[in-house]
C-alpha cells in the first residue's frame, strides 16, 4: 500500500511531517554527511540572533535518566554569518528551511526576522520565545501572554514568511500562550521547548552544568509534550508542530494523533545520527500496517 506523508503546513508543502529540531542539527552540514537532507520534511536551523553569541560556560550538556539537560545558551555565529555562510549552503540541499530566531529585545527579533524574510533563503520562521538558558530575552517573552502577543504582533509586521511561535512548557497553562501567539498573528505553533531541570554531582556536591539549570529533553518529556500538544490543539485553530522525546515513527504518530500536523526530532539525533530518516521510514511502515493512506487521516484523532 502506498501511503501519503505529505503535509500542507498552513500553505507550506512538506514532503513528510518530520524535521530536526532547532539546536539539535546545527545548520544541517554535520548530519548532511550522514544522509541526504532532502529526505527530511524540513530543517529547523539553530537559533539565530542579531549578533554572534558564544553561549554559556561548559559543561553545558549532561545526561540524565531517559534524557539530557542542556544549557548551550543560544551559541550561534550571528545573523550576518548565518545569511552569508550557512543558509546559502542549506538552501542548495532541496529542503524547506525554518529559521529559528531569538533575541534580547523586540527590535532584535524584528531585525533578524525582517532580514531572514528578505533573504529569500528561508521558507518559514520559528520564533524562539522559550529558551530557558539565557537571562535576557528567550523565555522572558514566552511566559507572559501579553508580552508574547506584543512581540508576535511586531514581528508579524516585518515577517513575510509563515511565522511559527515555539512555546515553552515552563508555564501554568500553555494554551494561554498559544492563544496569545495566535492573536498576535502567528501562522502556527511549535511545542514544546525544554523543561527546566537540574542535576547535582554527588562528588563536587554542586550542579553539573556551569549554568546550574538546563533544559530537559529526550524520552523523559514525551508524555508532557503530548499532553501539551493535545491541550493546545483543542483550543487553538492553528497548525501545530509537536516535539518532545520523539524517537520512533510510533512516537511521531502519537503526536499527530494528539493534534500535531508535523513533528520535530531533537535529542534522538544525538543517540542515533540517522534518527530522522529512520523515523520517516517507521512512520510510513506504521501507516501501512494500520491501513492509513494519508497522514492527515489521523491528525488530531485523539482529540
Amino acid at each position: 500500500m502506498s501511503v501519503d506523508l505529505e503535509v500542507d503546513l498552513g500553505g507550506l508543502q512538506l514532503r513528510n511531517p518530520v524535521m530536526p529540531a532547532s539546536g539539535c542539527f546545527g545548520f544541517g552540514r554535520e548530519y548532511g554527511e550522514y544522509y541526504s537532507l532532502d529526505e527530511l520534511g524540513a530543517v529547523v536551523v539553530k537559533a539565530t540572533t542579531l549578533y554572534p553569541r558564544l553561549g554559556n560556560p561548559t559543561p553545558r550538556v549532561t545526561e540524565v535518566t531517559g534524557g539530557m539537560l542542556n544549557a548551550i545558551g543560544l551559541a550561534n555565529p550571528g545573523l550576518d554569518e548565518v545569511l552569508a555562510e550557512e543558509l546559502p549552503w542549506l538552501a542548495g540541499q532541496n529542503v524547506p528551511i525554518f529559521v529559528n530566531v531569538a533575541g534580547d529585545t523586540v527590535e532584535d527579533y524584528c531585525e533578524v526576522v525582517e532580514q531572514v524574510s528578505r533573504s529569500g533563503l528561508a521558507q518559514a520562521v520559528e520564533l524562539n520565545v522559550s529558551c530557558p538558558n539565557v537571562k535576557l530575552g528567550g523565555l522572558a517573552f514566552g511566559v507572559d501572554a501579553t508580552v508574547l502577543r506584543g512581540l508576535v504582533e511586531e514581528v508579524r509586521k516585518v515577517c513575510t514568511l509563515p511565522l511559527f511561535v515555539k512555546l515553552s512548557p515552563n508555564v501554568t497553562r500553555v494554551q494561554d500562550l498559544a492563544l496569545a501567539a495566535a492573536c498576535g498573528g502567528a501562522d502556527g505553533l511549535s511545542l514544546i521547548n525544554t523543561l527546566i531541570g537540574m542535576q547535582i554531582d554527588l562528588t563536587t556536591r554542586k550542579p553539573v552544568l556551569a549554568n546550574k539549570t538546563g533544559g530537559l529533553s529526550g524520552r523523559a518529556i514525551k508524555p508532557v509534550a503530548v499532553r501539551m500538544v493535545y491541550d493546545v490543539a483543542r483550543e487553538v485553530d492553528l497548525p501545530i508542530i509537536g516535539m518532545g522525546g520523539i524517537y520512533s515513527g510510533r512516537d511521531a504518530a502519537e503526536f499527530i494523533m494528539a493534534g500535531a500536523w508535523a513533528v520535530e526530532v531533537g535529542t534522538a539525533n544525538f543517540t542515533d545520527p540517522y534518527a530522522c530518516p529512520r523515523i520517516i521510514a517507521e512512520l510510513r511502515s506504521f501507516m501501512q500496517e494500520e491501513g492509513i493512506k494519508n497522514i492527515e487521516e489521523i491528525r488530531g484523532c485523539a482529540l
Partner: peptide, 23 residues
Amino acid sequence: ERMACGVGACWGCTCLDPDGSAA
C-alpha cells in the same frame, strides 16, 4: 569535554580561542 552529538551539531562541547572572542 562533556559532549552530546559528537559531530559538531549541538555546540555542547565548545572551548574559546585565546582572546575569548570565538568558540
